Amino acid sequence: MTASPMLPFDDRGFAYGDGVFETVLLRDGEPILWDYHRARLRRGCEVLGIPMPSDAALEATWHTADPGERLPQQEVLKIVLTRGSGGRGYAPPLTPFPRLLSHRMPFTPNFSRWSEGIHVCICDLRLAQQPRLAGIKHLNRLENVLARREWQREDIAEGLLADQQNNVVEATSMNVFWQQDGAFWTPPLTQCGVAGTLREALLSHKLIAVAPLPLSELCRIERLWVGNSVQGIWPVVALVTHDGQVQKRWTRPTSDVLQAAGHRLLGFAA
């Protein structure tokens, strides 16, 4: 396992998206929901056939050389693992030498989106279905890039992505949650989509359950949220078209049980 700040031209992650990554919230230099991030990284390595980095190598990505160094209270750590170099064309090397890279930067949540809620649109792009890749956070995110290009309005914070059968799967960079009949739900991710670590934690604590959400039912649900393990949970207050025309509004209540539960898991103050 090699660590390098530079990516050579023949790296397979650069050439083919042959690798996985994690985006981790650090608080006072320590990773939040790390067990879930490590588990997803391991699943991705197993699917792609890339050796899993040692715990020591992963921990080195957030440990500092100076234990007395003053760190930002909150940071974002991005870990990228590629298969490394070698092989011929798409054929991977028989003995891979993975390349582990990382970068960290200070982070401040968008508090206004927590309190005021956001507008979302429905993306025209439909996600391809590939069960072998479903759930993992592999390096080929071109669908998300194309979907994010669909709107430029600053008042639209996220776009919802559906599959080939017009079932809601996720947002461009977040998972989707909704409330119906007093219960909290999230779409299944067996065919496509990324299994976010905050979503996994909410499922593990039995705070949400899995159910399909057809686009045709979206305007009938009681409430809607998007969220991930870095930004926390944003309540959706309006579904809009790409040009900002409102299709559906949801009331923002004074008490948000799902957001409070998710933010406790992330260590955000209530």
Rank of each mutant, 00 (worst) to 15 (best):
L7W: 07
L7M: 15
M174W: 08
D18C: 10
S255V: 14
E222D: 15
V145S: 00
E217N: 14
L207F: 10
R132K: 12
G49W: 01
A3K: 14
F111Y: 13
E143H: 11
Q245S: 13
R42G: 05
W234T: 00
V236H: 00
L218V: 04
G227Q: 05
P212C: 09
G86F: 08
E69M: 13
L218R: 05
V257Q: 14
W185H: 11
N166A: 14
G29C: 07
V257P: 10
L127N: 05
A269T: 12
H263D: 00
G227I: 03
I208G: 01
E75A: 06
L224D: 06
F268L: 09
W178L: 05
A134D: 11
H138C: 03
G193P: 01
G17Q: 12
A134H: 04
P5Y: 09
G262S: 02
L139S: 03
T95A: 11
I136S: 04
Q73M: 12
D181C: 11
S115G: 08
R104L: 10
G196W: 00
Q179L: 15
R149F: 01
Q73N: 14
A269L: 12
T254Q: 14
R249T: 15
G244Q: 07
L161K: 01
A209P: 04
G68N: 09
D11T: 04
L125K: 01
E30R: 13
L198M: 08
D181A: 15
L101V: 07
R249H: 13
R220M: 11
